[in-house]
């Protein structure tokens, strides 16, 4: 089967796609975008989270054929060239990245949260990220990163606003 899909703003085409393949497989193995991760492939860990028409989904649970003529945005499509998205920047700065295997999914999930709720409370952050497993960090620094990104987004750099990742 042939699949046509817009990925990170660019039209892409894949041929010989097997009907049972997931969007995750399509991205990773056919379109050269391995940023979305294959940690459980059954929708439990969130490591493969991508935007599908602006809604975050587990790409392992979406059949490749389902994305025909739709728009996908992956972790590779968040930065603006060399400039990281504030969420990505905050993850590195706050120490929210250890092995990093959960990071792409968490970055997309946090990016979506801050789009919907610019200044989330801690319980709101926890609820929003509850579908993303991390085995290294114990989540404390991931919370720090989301708080930091929220602050940064509210007061862009150079405005002199307080930048703090602490609770």
């Amino acid at each position: 089967m042939r699949v046509n899909v817009t990925v990170n703003g660019e039209p892409r085409q894949a041929d010989d796609v097997w009907e049972g393949e997931s969007l995750l497989f399509l991205l990773r193995e056919r379109l050269g975008l391995p940023g979305s991760k294959n940690a459980c492939e059954q929708g439990e860990c969130g490591s493969c989270t991508v935007y599908l028409d602006n809604t975050p989904v587990c790409s392992c649970l979406v059949a490749a054929g389902q994305v025909q003529d739709r728009e996908v945005r992956t972790v590779e499509g968040l930065a603006d060239g060399d400039r990281l998205d504030p969420v990505q920047e905050a993850f590195v700065e706050a120490g929210a990245v250890q092995c990093g295997f959960c990071t792409p999914g968490l970055v997309v999930a946090a990016h979506d949260l801050l789009d919907r709720v610019p200044q989330p409370s801690d319980p709101e952050i926890r609820e929003a990220l509850a579908g993303n497993l991390c085995r290294c960090t114990g989540y404390e620094k991931i919370l720090d990163a989301v708080r930091l990104a929220a602050t940064r987004k509210a007061a862009p750099r150079g405005s002199g606003a307080q930048e703090s990742g602490s609770r």
Binding site: E76, V97, V107
Partner: peptide, 20 residues
């Protein structure tokens, strides 16, 4: 900061399962 941090948050860090 970790020297691999940027690659990891961009989804560009090559894990063993990403190799081709």
């Amino acid at each position: 900061q970790r020297p691999d941090g940027n690659l990891k948050v961009r989804g560009e860090f090559a894990y063993a399962s990403d190799l081709w």
